[in-house]
Design a protein around this nucleic acid. Structure first.
Length: 827
RNA sequence: GCCCGGAUGGCGAAACUGGCAGACGCAACGGACUUAAAAUCCGUUGUCCCGCAAGGGACGUGCGGGUUCGAUCCCCGCUCCGGGCACCA
């Protein structure tokens, strides 16, 4: 008998699938199914996280094909990014070369895994054929007012003269030279994602069926809608005024001071010429010097300083002091807060520290609140007091009444604020898509004309890691002519955030060969939205939110019809080994190549899917891998041993089967039903595999008893083996193809999932537990569908049960047909 | 500090809608085959107690309560672990 040799089987079938173009989208005439896994960054080699992610996706893709769907299952490369530039600096290799070589190597690795991609649709984002469309989108967004430029703070290393990403800042120091990182203001490009805040929030409801609840929650919190009011406080003895945002306009009469963010524009004006000026400036400088992490550190101390200026309460005319406080954020709301110590905990703490006034204006039921005796702020419901005309009004009603009054007097209005901020896309780096804009001294900011796109990256660049963006030092790149006046002009040298590429790659896959447009409308209309998207939970907010925004923006530019890119989302867990995420620094990495070399791709796929359900973290175990491999060997040996007997068998004649064969066949058909649900609906491959293992165990037991296969038994086993191969095919495609060929079947990649025979799968009898007072005391075997009364009678007749019930009062009997009987007794 | 998850045998897990807790796999132990080992095959395996045995009982899903005939599952209050964070007015 032939032995199971994964390496020869796997390369044979990979070649055969390629020859047949088995995975080309548009081949079948079934309903479309767009299955997408997040594309990888070409870092050099694939890791176990990739193996897991793509094994999950491939099992679904192959199952859908078996079901007759026309499946689009593409793969590509998120190819721009910092590591390529770092490699260029370190190893003196051009980012383009480095990236191209990595892609070639990783593509081969993925092909060795036997993933069923339509490789004709491969996309790499670093090529002009891809990013030229991104440049076109950018210009159109600019024309629509959705892309704009403004000053913004970046991490700056004064020694390297370069901008650092957050991840390049380690404890406030530059990762390369340990110089303290500075905050530096640069003019940068932004996309107005905030214009879509309301739709991005509202449409999360449309995703409720297909997305994990926690991802929806995270996105909702990220968008962070707050409904409240903007209120204007005039500055006493001045023409200036301060607008605050509050979600609690009902507490307006309790405001005893105003707090400004250290970055607030008015701070300088307010302190000019006052004795407090020096102290305030020192405080502002100190807060600004703290990096973001420090400023928001655990248990952060609330600190502030009085400006010397006073504000006038908009409704009762009281003069209240204006402070600068470290916990007020310039980017949120208006950068200014009205402080109500009695009803806001932060203000309460602040007032305690600096001895500021407290006035109670919301009185809960019961004992009146006494400001001096309060241990913490009261932010619960109550009735208004000391609030002039609004006294006696419930808080939630007073909120809008006060907002309305302010609006009438021109001192405020209802307002909605989002936490979401615009998307900064400028990167002062080489290895990205150039932002297609030109600066002319005469004409200002001018987009690159469409017929001059793409703006491509120059090749003759040196990477030293010093002196900032190489593009900004490359004269032949940045020197250009103004498209409007033809005078000398300077090209934008910033490139785009790499999230720009990943925000629309799923559209490009739909018509990857199109050269006149980013994609064909009819292709996108056919395939979009992605029916199932799969990737890591770490992308729960940024990538998934940017893609949603981009989809809506492209819809409004007239490119597509879809509102949402991803109908269903599966977030898979991390791959863990020895209690920690697999990573080079921890030295607990398992190399996929080694694994494939030793056991074959099928074993790697099988273990990845068997060890845990997709959404959970997967604990790597070398022993577990061996177990998976043992199973495949067992499958191989069992089928090959009985191949000849089964090959000569005819179809199953259900009427001729004895009880033993009927039982075997019942489990075969039940398992087929379960596998279809577990693989196709729940994506719980681990339980599907467990059920198949149970089936194989049962078949083996039966075969051991039986000795050899003849007649009707051979027919039953022919069907059993056939079904086994179908059930396992999405998970271990190579070995199942080989075995199906041995059994004379058509290639599985061209076959359809068999229909389970409901009659054959039907149970005749069931074992039902009998409880007494909720504790298991016996079991009865009854025909399926036995009614309540018969069930109760049988239960009471069961000897053990009788022993527990005898001499006691039966209070109640719960009987659920086909489930259980519970007899409740007393005494 | 806030937000989001999680916790079930020696280990990974299962129990899908409130109905037999621990399927399946790993590890361990015993046996068969072998000169021997590996591989393979067969069997045992939640903890504790009674029993020579067949068998039976108690306990058991992080901890403490609650709802229910019945809770791994629902509710309240905690502990620990993991991930995220932007003091959000």
């Amino acid at each position: 008998m032939r032995e199971y040799t994964p390496s020869s089987i796997e390369s044979k079938w990979q070649a055969e699938w390629a020859r047949r173009e088995a995975f080309r989208a548009g081949r079948a005439d079934g309903q479309k199914y767009y299955l997408l896994e997040m594309f990888p960054y070409p870092s050099g080699r694939i890791h176990m996280g990739h193996v897991r992610n793509y094994s999950i996706g491939d099992a679904i893709a192959r199952f859908r094909r078996l079901q007759g769907f026309d499946v689009l299952h593409p793969m590509g490369w998120d190819a721009f990014g910092m590591p390529a530039e770092n490699a260029a600096i370190k190893h003196k290799v051009h980012p383009a070369k480095w990236t191209r070589e990595n892609i070639a190597y990783m593509r081969e690795q993925l092909q060795k895994m036997g993933f069923s991609y339509d490789w004709k649709r491969e996309v790499a984002t670093c090529f002009p054929e891809y990013y030229r469309w991104e440049q076109k989108f950018f210009i159109e967004l600019y024309r629509k007012g959705l892309a704009y430029k403004r000053m913004s703070v970046v991490n700056w290393c004064p020694a390297c003269m370069t901008v650092l990403a957050n991840e390049q800042v380690e404890q406030g120091l530059c990762w390369r030279c340990d110089t303290p990182v500075e905050a530096k203001e640069l003019e940068q490009w932004f996309l107005k994602i905030t214009a879509y805040a309301e739709e991005l929030l509202a449409d999360l409801d449309k995703l409720a069926d297909g997305w994990p609840e926690r991802v929806l929650t995270m996105q909702r919190n990220w968008i962070g809608k707050s409904v409240g009011a903007e209120i204007r406080f005039d500055v006493a003895d001045s023409d200036e005024s301060i607008t605050v945002f509050t979600t609690r306009p009902d507490t307006l009469f309790g405001a005893t001071f105003v707090s400004l963010a250290p970055e607030h524009k008015l701070v300088e004006k307010l302190i000019a010429g006052r004795p407090e000026a020096a102290a305030v400036q020192a405080f502002v400088a100190r807060v600004k010097a703290m990096d973001k992490i420090e400023r928001t550190a655990e248990g952060g101390e609330k600190e502030g300083v009085f400006t010397g200026a006073w504000a006038v309460h908009p409704l009762d005319g009281r003069r209240i002091p204006i402070w600068v406080a470290n916990f007020v954020l310039a980017e949120y709301g208006t950068g200014a807060v009205m402080a109500v110590p009695t009803h806001d905990q932060r203000d309460f703490e602040f007032s305690a520290k600096y001895g500021l006034d407290r006035i109670v204006v919301v009185q809960p039921e019961g004992e009146p609140l006494e400001p001096a005796a309060m241990k913490q702020a009261w932010d619960g419901p109550g009735t208004l007091v000391r609030s002039g005309a609004f006294d006696g009004m419930p808080g939630d009603e007073a909120k809008w009444a006060i907002a309305a009054e302010l609006e009438k007097q021109g001192k405020g209005k209802k307002s909605i604020t989002y936490r979401l901020r615009d998307w900064g896309i400028s990167r002062q780096r080489y290895w990205g898509a150039p932002i297609p804009m030109i600066y002319c001294a005469k004409c200002g900011v001018v987009p690159v004309p469409e017929d001059q796109l793409p703006v491509t990256l120059p090749e003759d660049v040196e990477f030293t890691g010093e002196g900032g963006n190489p593009l900004a030092r490359n004269r032949s790149f940045y020197e250009t002519a103004c498209p409007t006046c033809a005078g000398p002009a300077r090209r934008e040298t910033d490139t785009m955030d790499t999230f720009m590429e990943s925000s629309w790659y799923f559209l490009r896959y739909c018509s990857v060969d199109e050269s006149q447009a980013p994609f064909k409308r009819e292709d996108v209309d056919r395939w979009m939205p992605v029916d199932q998207y799969i990737g890591g939970i770490e992308h729960a907010v940024l990538h998934l939110l940017y893609s949603r925004f981009y989809t809506k923006a492209l819809r409004d530019l007239g490119y597509i019809g879809a509102d949402e890119p991803f109908a269903r989302l599966l977030t898979q867990g991390m791959v863990i080994k020895d209690g920690a995420k697999m990573s080079k620094s921890k030295g607990n990495v398992v190399d996929p190549d080694e694994l494939i070399g030793k056991y074959g791709a099928d074993t790697a796929r099988m273990f990845s899917l068997f060890a845990a359900p997709p959404e959970k973290d997967l604990d790597w175990s070398d022993r577990g891998v061996e177990g998976a491999h043992r199973f495949l060997n067992r499958l191989w040996n069992t089928i090959m041993t009985h191949r000849d007997a089964v090959l000569s068998a005819g179809p199953v004649q259900a009427a001729e089967l004895d009880e033993g064969l009927k039982t075997i066949r019942r489990q075969v058909h039940k398992t087929l039903q379960k596998a279809a649900v577990d693989i196709g609906e729940r994506f719980h491959f681990n339980t599907a595999i467990a059920a198949v293992m149970e089936l194989l165990n049962a078949l083996t037991d039966d075969l051991n008893r039986r000795g050899s296969l003849t007649g009707t038994a051979a027919a039953v086993y022919r069907e059993a083996f056939t079904f086994l191969l179908f059930m396992l095919n999405p998970i271990v495609p190579h070995v199942t193809e080989e075995l199906s060929a041995e059994l004379g079947m058509a290639p599985l990649c061209d076959s359809r999932w068999p229909a389970a025979d409901a009659e054959a799968a039907r149970d005749e009898a069931l074992e039902i537990p009998v409880q007494v007072n909720g504790k298991l005391r016996g079991k009865i075997t009854v025909p399926v569908g036995t009614g309540r009364d018969a069930l109760i009678a049988l239960a009471q007749a069961e000897p053990t049960v009788r022993g527990w019930v005898e001499g006691k009062d039966v209070v109640k009997i719960v009987a659920v047909p086909d489930r259980l009987v519970n007899i409740v007794v007393k005494g």
